[in-house]
Design a protein around this nucleic acid. Sequence first.
DNA 1: TTTAATAGTGCATTATAATGCACTATTATC
DNA 2: GATAATAGTGCATTATAATGCACTATTAAA
Lengths: 71, 71
Amino acid sequence: MHFNNLINSIKERREMLKVTQETLAELSGVGLRTLKQFESGKGNPTAETLNKLGDALGMELTFQVKKTKPE
Amino acid sequence: MHFNNLINSIKERREMLKVTQETLAELSGVGLRTLKQFESGKGNPTAETLNKLGDALGMELTFQVKKTKPE
DNA sequence: TTTAATAGTGCATTATAATGCACTATTATC
DNA sequence: GATAATAGTGCATTATAATGCACTATTAAA
């Protein structure tokens, strides 16, 4: 199971903000190992972990109804 | 830690589609106990669980940059 | 208010997420 | 190509998510 969209969102946002994994780990309260794992496409993070990362990056996790035809 | 936005999205969508927890559990491949736990506000689901539920309901999990001032 | 359907809980087990530590790999700077 | 900074991996441990089963609670229909 892949979460590439989530991974990319976090990774892009982190890089846009010029923040290292180490700093994001500290800011978010998520373990560095956990963040590394997540960003390298491994693992299956919990909602709590995703939320923590999102909070630190000014993002939020949401469900959206899929469009039948993407515009 | 609360995920009320995620919980409500799933719950509302499920009810809108007139689907029971039991049916959604079957459709999504998520254990009924797990779904019950999630919808009743307990637990800390993994991205995989959230994705499975989303898939079955035609929704997707996304990160969005928070607006400074909600409009 | 009985009955049936659906939703929520307690308990126990198994699978695995989160974590730290030490290491390697990659990338950028000199 | 040495050095330093950042990113990724292997391994072991601990915490907890996912699950089934049996039960209770709530809600809707008769």
